[in-house]
């Protein structure tokens, strides 16, 4: 029997990422015959506590002022102490966010384990943890055999299935003595965005270099996105050109998304872009070049200049209500 821990940030609530991470943790725990344990760093909402308690054998909320807002050293030390208190841990899972990505290797080192990033699939058959993930900018898939215990991973949680509710587990609040941090986050600026974030969007309308300039994002694509209740995204080329803000970027070095529908407009589909949106349930593309790589990953596509398609499509969708 070996246990699984899912580490979440209380401030994030019980979001899609938390659901996916918990679901993956639950399935791993089932295959290793161990328990699922959820650790919240910082106070968690009732919804989050309930969500976790519904599927985990134990829920620990590390609730103390130092964790009210994320601080790297405090979060790391708290995670280390909380995990250390759970015995016989084989896997520690994190979701797909800035803080998780930052903590994973350091936590693994402190727990004497090993770590890996951006994991798309993880199994733990016969005590051997195998993780699969993209490599070489999406050109290849790789499988890793993890060599130390515990295995600390951050996973593409949004693309993973949620947990099935089980017997409710225990819930306790904890607080630890934490060292004085050397590095302090002193201010936070949230970029204004309308509606849900790219990661949380169900539908994404993305544009690429083929749009030729920022105007199309501002006009045609915005109109279409509104009609589709979608969030707008972009390829790296469009972001690098300064047409749209950098946080619109989908791809290897941007956001990794997995919406129900991803509509790629004038995006050729470099592997680095595909790496960021390949998990989408349905991909559609509008491109003038029938040989564009994006079409090799599409469910359906239309070979046309976007100028001839986007406005009429918007109209059509609006009329269909």
């Amino acid at each position: 029997m070996s246990n699984v821990i899912v580490v979440l940030f209380g401030n994030n609530g019980w979001d899609r990422s938390a659901e996916g991470a918990a679901g993956t943790g639950q399935r791993l725990a089932q295959s290793t015959g161990g328990n699922l344990n959820v650790v919240f760093l910082g106070d968690a909402s009732k919804e989050a506590r309930d969500g976790a308690a519904a599927c985990a054998a134990s829920v620990v909320v590390v609730n103390q002022p130092e964790l009210a807002e994320y601080q790297p050293e405090a979060a790391l030390e708290a995670a280390q102490k909380a995990c250390a208190e759970i015995s016989d841990t084989s896997v520690v899972l994190f979701g797909n966010d800035t803080y998780s990505q930052e903590l994973v290797p350091r936590l693994a080192h402190r727990l004497g384990g090993c770590s890996l990033a951006d994991v798309q699939g993880v199994t733990a058959d016969g005590g051997q943890v195998l993780a699969t993930r993209s490599a070489y900018g999406g050109k290849a898939m790789s499988t890793y055999s993890m060599k130390k215990t515990p295995v600390v991973l951050w996973v593409r949680a949004r693309a993973m299935d949620p947990a099935t509710p089980g017997a409710g587990g225990s819930l306790e609040e904890k607080a630890y003595e934490l060292a004085t941090p050397r590095l302090t986050i002193t201010s936070r600026d949230v970029l204004e965005s309308e509606g849900p974030s790219l990661e949380d969007a169900s539908i994404i309308v993305s544009g690429g270099r083929g749009l030729g300039g920022p105007e199309a994002f501002e006009n045609e694509l915005k109109g279409l996105a509104t009609a589709m209740h979608a969030v707008q995204g972009a390829s790296r080329a469009a972001c690098d050109a300064g047409w749209v803000p950098p946080n619109w970027q989908v791809g290897q070095t941007g956001k990794k998304v997995a919406p129900e529908l991803y509509l790629a407009i004038a995006i050729s589909g470099a592997s680095q872009h595909l790496l960021g949106m390949g998990d989408s349930k349905m991909i559609a593309a509008i491109n003038t070049d029938p040989d564009a790589p994006i079409f090799k990953h599409c469910s359906f596509g239309i070979v046309e200049d976007y100028k001839n398609v986007v406005a009429p499509l918007t109209e059509k969708l609006n009329s269909m209500g």
Binding site: L130, M141, Y144, M146, K147, K296, H297, G301
Partner: peptide
């Protein structure tokens, strides 16, 4: 001793793109 790559392969995408057909745009 940390991890070992046990498999590296180029994924074969079997998605068949359906190009939307029609007489007019």
């Amino acid at each position: 001793s940390f991890y070992e790559v046990t498999d590296l392969s180029i994924p074969t995408k079997d998605v068949q793109c359906e190009f939307v057909e029609g007489d007019s745009i």
